[in-house]
Write a protein that binds this DNA or RNA. Sequence first.
RNA 1: GCGGAUGUGGCGGAAUGGCAGACGCAGCAGACUCAAAAUCUGCCGGUGGUGACAUCGUGCGGGUUCAAGUCCCGCCAUCCGCACCA
Length: 805
Amino acid sequence: MAATYNHKSVEKKWRGRWEAHPINVNDGRKPKYYCLDMFPYPSGSGLHVGHWRGYVISDVWSRYKMLHGYYVIHPMGWDAFGLPAENYAIKNGVHPKISTAQNVANIKRQIKDISAVYDWDMEVNTTDPEFYKWTQWIFVKMFKAGLAYEKEMPINWCPSCKTGLANEEVVNGCCERCHSEVTKKNLKQWMLKITAYADRLLEDLDQLDWPEKVKKMQSDWIGRSYGAEVDFKVEGTDKAITVYTTRPDTLYGATFMVLAPEHVMAKELATDETREDVENYIYRASTRSNIDRMQDKEKTGVFTGSYAINPLNGAKVPIWLSDYVLADYGTGAIMCVPAHDDRDFEFAKKFSLPIIQVIAKDGREIENMTEAYTEASGTMINSGEWNGMESSVLKREAPAMIEKMGYGRKKVNYKLRDWVFSRQRYWGEPIPIVHCPDCGCVPVPEDQLPVLLPEVEKYEPTGTGESPLAAIDSWVNTTCPCCGKPAKRETNTMPQWAGSSWYFLRYVDNKNKEELVGKERASQYLPVDMYIGGVEHAVLHLLYSRFYTKFLHDIGVVDFDEPFKKLFNQGMINGKNGVKMSKSMGNVVSPDDLIEDYGCDALRMYELFVGPPEMDAEWDDRGIDGVRRFISRLWNLIQDSAAAPAAETADMIKLRHKMIYDITARLESFSLNTVISGFMEYTNKLIELAKRQGGIDKETMDTVVTLLAPFAPHAAEELWETLGHEESVFENNQWPQADEEAMKDDALEIAIQVNGKMKGKVTLAVDADRDTALAAAREALGSRYPENAIKEIYVPGKIINIVAK
RNA sequence: GCGGAUGUGGCGGAAUGGCAGACGCAGCAGACUCAAAAUCUGCCGGUGGUGACAUCGUGCGGGUUCAAGUCCCGCCAUCCGCACCA
């Protein structure tokens, strides 16, 4: 009897071997496959079993690709700048540089326990000056391309994090990071013109093999709409108000106009009678928080006292103010067609404004309208020369017609805003700009990068809208790179997302001092073939990365313009009752103890076994016993047979090929939980068959061990060695091939139903004809065969169904 | 409000329209043991029946089909995303 499975000694042995003899080497002949994990930020609490899941999935996939003969690029690094690291440092009174280094060391130890095939020579850290030199370099390039600009405007401000935020970082009016309510603050900000890439970011989604959900989230976030701007003259003045509409076909139905309270003309439209009400309304709107404004669905508004003239028919329409119109979308003013827009309808009802229908639904006007008819489908009525046209056609053609008539112009709008890029925090990349009184904003020359983040005593955020860096006079005061006169450094830092927007490019050439990434390496190893991580970055990191990659493509750094060909979002692992794992809930399960007790291989397999990889799962320690027992059973089977393999039998060959087929198909469809159950199922069958025929043959054992290798690499290597192989199972590079001929059964057990209900079974030859099958069914059911059968269904290989009255 | 996902035993979950509950956990019984652990064997949705079996059963209500967890229509619940974007 061979030694029982001892995960500690086996795993220690093979970890040592792999370190001495790496198994994933680039021999220059293999094709490459780039399998990337979303890199972690080194938090102080370390990894829990939920983080592990994604890393296990990517490692299984990487090893699977290795076994197909690929050189797999599988790197790991640290997203170490940004708020989490800094907040952790502040809370614990340690400099972020020190705490970050400690956390990296701890998490690296934990990640090494996964025994993934990470290539640590490729490691990057976003806080390394050799790395952020290039983060700054990209900013300088964007500045030179006119894509980075400074602007003073009211931006989203998190009073708790004491910094400005990008739109993408505000979730339901709250800070994405700390969930405090976000306020507005007027600040001079660096902005990145991501809107210049809006069309490409939208249209190129089509070519990506990404989850539809993520593509839709990005496409909704970009929010492109087609319509027209229409100019309405203000009665009695020579001024005009421009509105944006996606429904210019309904222009004849405009019975009033609404401006956002923040609209520049809001105040001047007030008359003597309305001035007090108008100013009150504007004031009240300015003091209401975003959250109030979102929760309060009841429409409010005030009449300005002024009228606008519909250019098409000269109709006089009252101009109102209401906070349901957003100041920063379109022109901040809308024309209102209550008959064909829900919000306008509600407003018109509340303030008793006229409603004119201009689209006939089903050929006639709607009587006693109780809700707006919002579809662009029907014949135009009450619309002058447009009468009789089809609304859907007019909707498409009206922008051009209006432009031709001189009343406005075609217009495409986006929800996407430019990216607020300044952070008033210490722990980030300094923005490499010098402010010169004479020359203005001057980028730091590329050969002087990086602009090092200075050491400071006080790195807590100030809350004043200035970064802590502003207090370091010796650092702030510098000379202008352009004219040499005294000048001041930009003191804001970049957001957390800056480094992560391009880190995946650096892995493949992380020691290059001359270039962000060398041309040759870039074209050889990039882009990423498979990207694995959580769905929470759908419109943050994943949108920013695409933007950066497109920009780097445009300036000739890389020759592709989409970074991640395929994306997989793994589900979260929660604690009991679906509660998110967190320190404060005290329900965090650390992988460390589980590895100690059950072994890395068992934990790897259990991480997959808990459920479909794309779905959330509740962690329950107890289940890991089952996986551990499975490994032991398979271990014993092979250890016992390895010394004296049995001869091949027809049954064993058939079982082997079925196993190859099933495991491979499930792997290819990423159904990793059923791969594990498949292993258990087939192992049980192998054990049973081996028992019956006195052993298992060599080729079947080799096959099982190879299939197992991506999942339980240590156990697989040990068994592979036991089977007499000298090289690593991964150096064998042979994923088993299923022979479909060899899998075929000549007889099948099929079910017999009566009226669709299972009544019995019968074993039939695969090619049994109808008469044979029905005769067999009749015999099998005996007296239970219905006498009044009216129809007999026989689907070869599937079913017999007797239909009876 | 709009969009998407999910809903199956005590639990996690499995089922190209064709035997619902694979696989595993937990549980029960047995073997081994002085005993326990480990391991092995068997049972394991509800109801009725000693039993062969019968009957109900995949969130709810309809429908299509010889046959529906699966397809279609209408609901409900939970979760996620968006949320006055004109």
